[in-house]
Write a protein that binds this DNA or RNA. Structure first.
Length: 281
DNA sequence: TTTAATGTTCATGA
DNA sequence: TTCATGAACATTAA
């Protein structure tokens, strides 16, 4: 379920439901999800008897703040969490539930991931900043943190196509394949334009559209496309506002031209050939 | 049977 | 160094 609005929606639910919970036990059914220098046993033993004080987020990474460490969870393509009160725990775990957190109050948090691409890491508090620096994460897509001049300068140094740059999380975090197509459409920018070819006014518009789109989608609980549901089993509502993603063959909402689909950076890419011209005149 | 899917990371070669 | 491409991870569904 993974772009920033969906991760943020998950975070809110997780925070509500796991705050102040003491981890009593963890069942791990697919150890490859645990990406750490620690052995899976050490990872497990470190977490036991720690309390979740807060669930925060950096980019698309969920951060469970424990006593001595933070548990970092990335959902990648299909990861999701389901919370069960003690009276409502399923008799048999779902087929794709790969990690179960059992809390002292007998409630449970199940990590579910059809493709098993998600990852858990464990970081000491002192190393958290360095951990995220190594991931090369850009600023959060908010008006306060996402600086226009810095964005503009960084783009001018990139000779890669703009969609690839935005997906890299290096200049700004949070965009994935859906929202990047939406934001480029809103900005009238062809996805294969080189980043350093954007004009000042295009960069300004692009930044504003990134901030606005992520904010609106977050307020609506993200988008439910394919399978996404948040921790409380709720669907997002932003999919009703999507303009080009998955709309190939349909008319552009602005001009009626047929939306096309191409491949960029190995990802399906949707755009309007009229509103997002390859060459500017 | 083949392909593509809301992501990240690594290897290879230009 | 930078960038493009492809692969890997793994499963499902069209």
């Amino acid at each position: 379920m993974p772009e920033l609005p969906e991760v943020e929606s998950a975070r809110v639910g997780l925070h509500q439901v796991t705050k102040n919970k003491l981890i009593h036990d963890i069942e791990i059914y697919w150890p490859n999800l645990i990406a750490t220098e620690l052995s899976v046993d050490e990872w497990h033993n470190t977490l036991i008897n720690q309390t979740i004080h807060q669930v925060s987020r950096r980019g698309k990474y969920l951060v469970f703040e424990l006593d001595t460490h933070v548990l970092v969870s990335h959902l990648r393509m299909e990861g999701k969490y389901f919370y069960y009160p003690s009276e409502d725990i399923p008799e048999e775990k779902a087929k794709h539930t790969h990690v179960i957190f059992k809390f002292k109050d007998e409630t449970e948090l199940h990590y579910h991931d059809v493709r098993k691409f998600g990852r858990f890491e464990l970081v000491q508090y002192a190393d958290v900043d360095q951990f995220f620096q190594e991931k090369k994460l850009g600023p959060e897509p908010t008006g306060e943190e996402f600086d226009l001049d810095a964005f503009s300068v960084a783009l001018s140094k990139k000779s890669r196509v703009i969609k690839t740059v935005l997906l890299s999380q290096e200049l700004v975090v949070g965009l994935g394949n859906i929202y990047v197509d939406e934001v480029l459409f809103d900005s009238g920018i062809y996805p294969e334009r080189l980043a350093n070819s954007l004009t000042e006014s295009e960069v300004t518009t692009l930044r504003e559209n990134i901030i606005r789109t992520i904010e609106q989608a977050t307020e609506l609980g993200g988008s439910t496309i394919r399978t996404y549901k948040n921790t409380l089993g709720e669907s997002g509502r932003y999919q009703n506002y999507i303009q080009v993603y998955g709309k190939e063959g349909q008319p552009c909402p602005n001009c009626g031209t047929t939306i096309e689909k191409i491949k960029v950076h190995g990802r399906g890419t949707h755009f309007c050939p009229f509103c997002q011209p390859k060459e500017k005149d």
